[in-house]
């Protein structure tokens, strides 16, 4: 299969081998990936709770989410880089892992959820920024995001257990 061949090739590249065989690089990358969760998934979770109208009720949704967004983006870029490097060091293990495949699926679903949100209810956010409870669409988008990112984290953590 093409994907497996790609993973085999990737695993044998110099970068993949050096991360895998270094004593410190892999733990440092994984620790960074773990603690980066606070900024990436953490700020997403706060935005989700505001979209659901459960937190920062006195503040406008646009203020809360606008203030968090630069950090969400920075955190996401950081997680993508560290995540890709971790994958690069053990692509075959990831390919064979059910949990890793589930993680990719949940990531994809979270991206679709975010895409739908940005194309629809986000465009009218100025109009509902101080409305409580927020419109049904916003509450659903927040709930789905919270659920899917939680599943991404759970599947990601379980990937490391080889079960």
């Amino acid at each position: 299969m093409a994907i497996l061949e790609f993973c085999q090739w990737l695993q044998e590249t110099q970068v993949g081998t050096s991360i895998r065989e270094s004593t410190l690089t892999f733990p440092i990358l994984e620790g960074s990936h773990l603690l980066g969760l606070g900024v990436s998934a953490g700020t997403i979770a706060i935005s989700d709770l505001r979209m659901m109208g459960l937190i920062f009720k006195k503040e406008k949704a646009t203020d809360v989410m606008g203030g968090l967004l630069p950090f969400t983006i920075a955190g996401f870029i950081f997680m993508t880089i560290t995540g890709l490097l971790l994958f690069w060091s053990e692509p075959i293990k990831c390919y064979e892992s059910l949990w890793f495949r589930l993680k990719v699926l949940f990531l994809f679903m979270a991206a679709v959820n975010a895409g739908i949100f940005h194309l629809t209810i986000w465009r009218t956010m100025d109009r509902w920024a101080d409305q409580l409870p927020p419109p049904t669409g916003a509450r659903w988008a927040g709930f789905m995001s919270l659920l899917l990112w939680g599943l991404v984290i759970a599947a990601g953590r379980t990937t490391a257990y080889n079960i």
């Binding site: 603690l35 969760l37 606070g38 900024v39 998934a41 953490g42 700020t43 979770a45 706060i46 968090l68 950090f71 984290i153």
Partner: peptide
């Protein structure tokens, strides 16, 4: 994740 999010913000 929740703890770090609150603390970092």
């Amino acid at each position: 994740t929740v703890l770090l999010a609150g603390i970092i913000v």
